[in-house]
């Protein structure tokens, strides 16, 4: 079975740890080299990217958002709440990727309509397996709505 191969897949990673950013980048490099990883280092940055504010005027609409919960300035919970309240943004699949194992965070994220909740694994192999899983499911298997016309 072949899938239409898009020119590029845009992934927005909202992550303040450069180490995690690089790990994610390295993982995608092995797993799917068509992925263009965009990074927002906090919640404010993420919302600016999604709303194409200021320097992000030319930013693409991401195909998926990988969102950490604990972030400076505006945390991931607030980002999730805002983007799920925005009719044009809420259709973008949003995957929570965090070290938090707290039940409160898990429940709260699903209540805010996160599409899935994942813990960052301790081992490199496991991390790569996780990123491969995200790629295979969200970027290959799942049918996503095409962005409505006018959003360029």
């Amino acid at each position: 079975m072949t899938v239409d191969k898009p020119a590029a897949i845009d992934v927005l990673l909202v992550e303040d740890s450069p180490g995690d950013v690089r790990l994610t980048l390295e993982a995608f490099r092995i797993i799917n080299d068509t992925v263009r990883l965009h990074v927002a280092v906090d919640g404010v940055d993420a919302m600016a990217f999604l709303r194409r504010d200021g320097t992000y005027a030319e930013a693409p609409r991401p195909d998926i958002i990988l969102l950490d919960l604990n972030l400076p300035r505006m945390d991931g919970r607030e980002v999730l709440a805002q983007l799920k309240a925005d009719p044009s943004l809420k259709v973008i699949p949003t995957v929570i990727l965090t070290t938090s194992e707290a039940q409160a965070d898990i429940v709260n994220s699903y209540q805010l309509q996160a599409n899935c909740y994942l813990n960052k694994p301790m081992q490199l192999d496991a991390f790569e397996t996780l990123v491969r899983g995200i790629n295979d499911f969200w970027l290959s298997t799942v049918k996503l709505p095409r962005p409505a016309g006018g959003s360029a």
């Binding site: 740890s17 180490g19 790990l23 390295e26 070290t99 490199l124």
Partner: peptide
């Protein structure tokens, strides 16, 4: 403690 250690372990493995 897990957080920085995850970085150490992951990059050492890399």
């Amino acid at each position: 403690l897990q957080e920085p250690l995850r970085m150490v372990a992951s990059y050492l493995q890399l």
